[in-house]
Design a protein around this nucleic acid. Structure first.
Length: 546
DNA sequence: CGTTTTTGACCGGCGC
DNA sequence: GCGCCGGTCAAAAACG
C-alpha cells in the first residue's frame, strides 16, 4: 500500500522505484499491454474487487488515458483516479449495450455490475484524494530538504564567521534569527571554499586536492559521500586543532566518494594522533588561536539505552583503544575507534550508568569518512541529525545557555519529550543525549500530535540501525533501498539520498522523538538478538515494497 | 601470524 | 606550579 502510494505519487521517481516492485506487482499485464495490475496491487485492499472488474477496468483504463493530463504512458498508470470518470462513461455504454434486447437476468447482472462499478468508482475516488495528499507530502518533504540545506549552509557560514573574524553579538543575533543568507559567504573573502572543506574532515590538513570545489559545487556535483549533517559534526572537531589549515584541504569528499578506497593521503584524513599536532610548527600552533578553539567545541551525540551487552550494535566496526575508570563511576569507560575506514575519525565511548548499571551510555563523536553499510548509515545519520539539531540551536556564544530543559534545548527539540532528548553544553563538548531508557508514553508525546511512529515501528522487531534506516526512508523521498542498489555506482546518489533523509529527519524534531521511541521499543530486543541488524537490506527491501 | 584487547604510561587541559 | 582527570598511546597479551 505504501509503495503503491509512492509509486503513484512520485511520478518523476518512477524509474527509480520500479525495480522495487515485487514480482506480483508487475505480473499481471493485461491486454493492451497496460500494467493494470500495478495499480491493483498498489491498492491491495481493493484488489479482490478490482479483479472482479478486470474486464471493465481494462476498457476504462484505455479511455482514462485520454482523459488524463498528459503524463506519458508510464505515468498514466498512477493516475488511477482517471479511470473513475471513464468508469462512469463505461457504465453508460454498458447500459446502452444491454438495452439491446437482453434478458432480465442479464439486466440484473448488469445492474449488479453497475453497483459494483459505483462502489469501485467511489473507492478509486478516495484513492485519488489519497494520491493528491501524498503528492503534497512529497512536496513538503522536498521543501524541508531545501530549507535544511539552507540551514546547513548557514551553520557553516556561522562557523566560518567565528573563525575568520570574531563576530559581534549583533551578528550572532542575526544568524540566530536566520537572516544570514547564502550570499553572505561571499563576504568571507577567500573562504568560499573553505567552508565545505572545514566541514569535511577535521583531522586531515596538509593535503589539498580540490581547492576549486566550491560550496555549491560540492553540493550539486555531490563530490562527497558524506551528508552535510554529518559534516557539521565533524566540523566541530576539525576546528579544534587544525582550523588554520583546513581551508586548504578539500580532498576529504573525494576520498569518501571513492568507496572507501584510501587516497594517497588517506592517513592524513580523519582521526589523527595527537602526536601529529605536536609536530605542527610553532607558527601553526599560533594560528590555531585559543579563541577559535574555545569557541568551537566538539559536538557529541550520546545514546542511553538499557542493554546487557557491552555495546549496542550500530552497524559499525569498532576497535577498543582504551579503557579508563572515570571519576564518580565505578564502571570503566571504554574507548572505541571506528575501523571500517582507514583513519576514520569517529570514536565512541561506552560506559554504564553509575546509577543504573543496566543503562548503557554510548557517546558518538565525529563523522565517518568512508561509505557505511546500511545499518551503520542509519545510526550515523541519526546521530548526525541529532548533532545538527544541537548545532542549529546552539551558538558558541550561547554556551551555558543550553542545558536540559533550557529554552534553547526546547527550541531545538520543541516537540521532543524532555525524557527522550536533551541538549547539554556542559564542558567541554555540547552533547545531544537521546534517552532510550524509557518509552515515550502518549502523554509525553506532543499534544495534538498523536504517536507518529510508523506502524512498522510497532509491528517489526528490528535492530536499532534497521529501524533507523527504515525511518529515514519513510521521511525521505528516497528509499534506503534505492540508496543501496548498486552501492558502487550509486555512491554519489547514495550520499544525496542519505543527505536528504538526514535533512528530513533534522527538519522534523517530532520525527526524532518518534525515532527515539522506536529505538526504545527495539533496544530491549537487541539484548536477546544482537544479529538482527544484519538483514537491514532485506528488511528494507520488503518494507519498501509494502 | 595477523588482529584485537588489555593496561600502564603519557599528555594536555583545567582548577586551585 | 602542582595535582587531578579525561583521553590517548603503545607494548604486551590474548585471540582466532
Amino acid at each position: 500500500m505504501e509503495s503503491a502510494a509512492s509509486d503513484h505519487s512520485i511520478h518523476n521517481c518512477r524509474s527509480i522505484e520500479r525495480p522495487l516492485l515485487s514480482p506480483e506487482t508487475t505480473v499481471d499485464h493485461d491486454h493492451h499491454g497496460k500494467r493494470i495490475v500495478d495499480e491493483l496491487d498498489f491498492f491491495a485492499d481493493n484488489k479482490g474487487r478490482l479483479m472482479e472488474m478486470r474486464d471493465q477496468t481494462v476498457e476504462v483504463r484505455e479511455e482514462g488515458a485520454h482523459d488524463h493530463h498528459g503524463v506519458g504512458q508510464e505515468k498514466q498508470l498512477p493516475d488511477v483516479n482517471t479511470g473513475l470518470n471513464l468508469l462512469t462513461t463505461y457504465t453508460g455504454s454498458d447500459k446502452s449495450s444491454m438495452d439491446d434486447g437482453t434478458s432480465s437476468s442479464h439486466n440484473m447482472e448488469d445492474k449488479h455490475r453497475t453497483n459494483e462499478l459505483a462502489v469501485l468508482q467511489a473507492e478509486l475516488g478516495r484513492m485519488s484524494v489519497e494520491n493528491q495528499r501524498l503528492r503534497v507530502m512529497i512536496s513538503q518533504v522536498n521543501n524541508n530538504y531545501q530549507a535544511l540545506q539552507v540551514q546547513i549552509v548557514t551553520l557553516m557560514q556561522r562557523q566560518q564567521n567565528q573563525k575568520a573574524d570574531h563576530q559581534t553579538p549583533e551578528q550572532h543575533q542575526m544568524i540566530n534569527n536566520g537572516s544570514v543568507v547564502l550570499e553572505e559567504k561571499q563576504m568571507m573573502n577567500g573562504f568560499n571554499h573553505i567552508v565545505p572543506r572545514q566541514f569535511m574532515d577535521m583531522g586531515r590538513a596538509e593535503k589539498d586536492e580540490l581547492p576549486q570545489c566550491s560550496l555549491e559545487g560540492c553540493r550539486s556535483q555531490d563530490c562527497s559521500g558524506s551528508p552535510p549533517q554529518n559534516d557539521i559534526v565533524e566540523s566541530m572537531e576539525c576546528c579544534k586543532s587544525t582550523s588554520h589549515v583546513l581551508h586548504r584541504d578539500l580532498s576529504g569528499r573525494i576520498s569518501t566518494t571513492n568507496g572507501g578506497e584510501d587516497s594517497p593521503d588517506q592517513e592524513f584524513q580523519g582521526w589523527v594522533p595527537k602526536k601529529v599536532s605536536k609536530m605542527m610548527s610553532p607558527r601553526d600552533v599560533d594560528q590555531a588561536s585559543s579563541e577559535t578553539m574555545s569557541m568551537i567545541k566538539k559536538a557529541r551525540v550520546s545514546v542511553r539505552a538499557r542493554s546487557d551487552a557491552s555495546m549496542i550494535s550500530d552497524g559499525c566496526q569498532w576497535r577498543k583503544y582504551g579503557q579508563k575508570l572515570a571519576k564518580g563511576n565505578p564502571c570503566p569507560r571504554a574507548y572505541y575507534r571506528c575501523t571500517m575506514g582507514t583513519g576514520c575519525p569517529v570514536r565512541k565511548q561506552v560506559q554504564r550508568c553509575a546509577e543504573d548499571r543496566t543503562i548503557l551510555v554510548t557517546t558518538y563523536e565525529g563523522h565517518h569518512n568512508h561509505p557505511l553499510p546500511p545499518a551503520a548509515m542509519a545510526m550515523a545519520s541519526t546521530t548526525s541529525a541529532a548533532a545538527s539539531m544541537l548545532l542549529s540551536g546552539s551558538m558558541p556564544s550561547a554556551d551555558g545557555l543550553i542545558s536540559s530543559n533550557s529554552f534553547l534545548a526546547r527550541s531545538a527539540l520543541p516537540n521532543c519529550p524532555p525524557s527522550l532528548a536533551t541538549l547539554s553544553a556542559s564542558a567541554p563538548f555540547p552533547t545531544v543525549t537521546l534517552d532510550l531508557t524509557r518509552t515515550p508514553t502518549s502523554s509525553e508525546m506532543p499534544l495534538g500530535q498523536p504517536n507518529q511512529l510508523p506502524p512498522s515501528f510497532h509491528q517489526n522487531m528490528m535492530s536499532v540501525p534497521q529501524i533507523l534506516g527504515q525511518a529515514l526512508s519513510s521521511q525521505s523521498k528516497f528509499s534506503v533501498l534505492d540508496s543501496f542498489q548498486g552501492l558502487d555506482s550509486a555512491t554519489h546518489s547514495l550520499a544525496d539520498k542519505v543527505n536528504a533523509a538526514t535533512a528530513a529527519v533534522t527538519a522534523d524534531p517530532n520525527f526524532t522523538a518518534a525515532l527515539v521511541a522506536a529505538i526504545t521499543s527495539i533496544i530491549g530486543n537487541v539484548h536477546s538478538n544482537n544479529n538482527t541488524n544484519n538483514n537491514i537490506t532485506t528488511r528494507n527491501n520488503s518494507d519498501s515494497n509494502t
